[in-house]
């Protein structure tokens, strides 16, 4: 849990036994007519209990990377190890929150949240009471018997966050979970997530488009560039927790934010330039 108080560092991560180790991972999608190199030579370590964010332009392979960690997409090159064994995160050990809410329209909010309990054969009554707690946590008390279509997009997304937490997974994989939320709710949910992270010691892999959000929440930020998808730089955020909105204004955080922004816009302009040539 304790973070090296090194300032902004770059380069391959180190550490004795990481929870997840990604080594030289690449992905090429082979279509009927073309091949897309979605990711090339990705390497990083995720320590147990750490919060790792992925930021990068649309199409740089964030979703692909997350799904590869989950074993949902095969690797073209490289390897993924989990707890020292060469395999992706085993099913049931992770909670997934997808970029879209991915709720089942025929299930009520309650039954959507308890879906992991159905699959994993968990106790029904316990699952229900836990689901009610989670509903409160995501600010949807009293909506348990609604159908997804009766909820707004942001509410649906919060239901899917609650579902990701239901079975108390060791690892949370979250793909832009706050994408459809308004700024204030988004902030609240961010702090809620930080609290969950601190209390439960879960390992969280978190995709976001918001640089401040990633700086606020993460121990480690992985900045990805596009064409092909690759790691531009890895940052460590050595600030103490819990972090508050005031921390965002601190020089250290401002510095990291500014650097990531510069890095991304540089990557963007360079790839646009390449297209122009």
């Amino acid at each position: 849990m304790t973070q090296d108080v090194s300032s902004v560092t770059k380069g391959p991560p180190s550490g004795a036994e990481p929870l997840i180790r990604i080594e030289g991972v690449g992905k090429t999608f082979v279509g009927a007519a073309d091949r897309t190199v979605a990711l090339r030579d990705i390497s990083f370590d995720v320590e147990a209990g750490s919060f790792v964010s992925f930021v990068g332009p649309s199409g740089c392979g964030k979703t692909t990377l997350l799904k590869m960690c989950a074993g949902l997409i095969s690797l073209s090159t490289g390897s993924i190890s989990y707890r020292g064994a060469r395999r992706p995160i085993p099913p049931g050990d992770m909670g997934m929150v997808f970029q879209t809410a991915a709720l089942m329209p025929w299930r009520t909010v309650m039954r959507n949240i308890t879906y992991p309990a159905d699959v994993l054969h968990l106790d029904k009554r316990e699952a229900r009471s836990r689901a009610l707690e989670l509903l409160k946590l995501v600010g949807l008390e009293g909506k348990e018997s609604r159908l997804p279509q009766q909820l707004s997009g942001g509410q649906q997304q919060r239901v899917s966050i609650a579902r990701g937490l239901l079975h108390d997974p060791a690892v949370l994989l979250m793909d832009e979970p706050f994408g459809a939320l308004d700024a204030l709710t988004r902030e609240d949910m961010g702090f809620e997530l930080q609290r969950i992270h601190q209390q439960s010691g879960k390992t969280i892999l978190f995709v976001t488009h918001s640089i401040p959000e990633s700086v606020l929440l993460s121990d480690q930020i992985i900045v990805l560039g596009t064409r092909p998808g690759r790691i531009l730089k890895t940052y460590r955020v050595p600030l103490p927790r819990p972090r508050t909105i005031e921390h965002l204004q601190s020089p250290g955080m401002q510095e990291i934010s500014a650097e990531i922004r510069a890095l991304l816009s540089d990557n963007e302009s360079r790839s646009v330039g390449m297209l122009g040539d």
Partner: peptide
């Protein structure tokens, strides 16, 4: 929905 189910085994 399929991937969610898969991620739960």
């Amino acid at each position: 929905q399929y991937e969610l189910s898969k991620s739960l085994g």
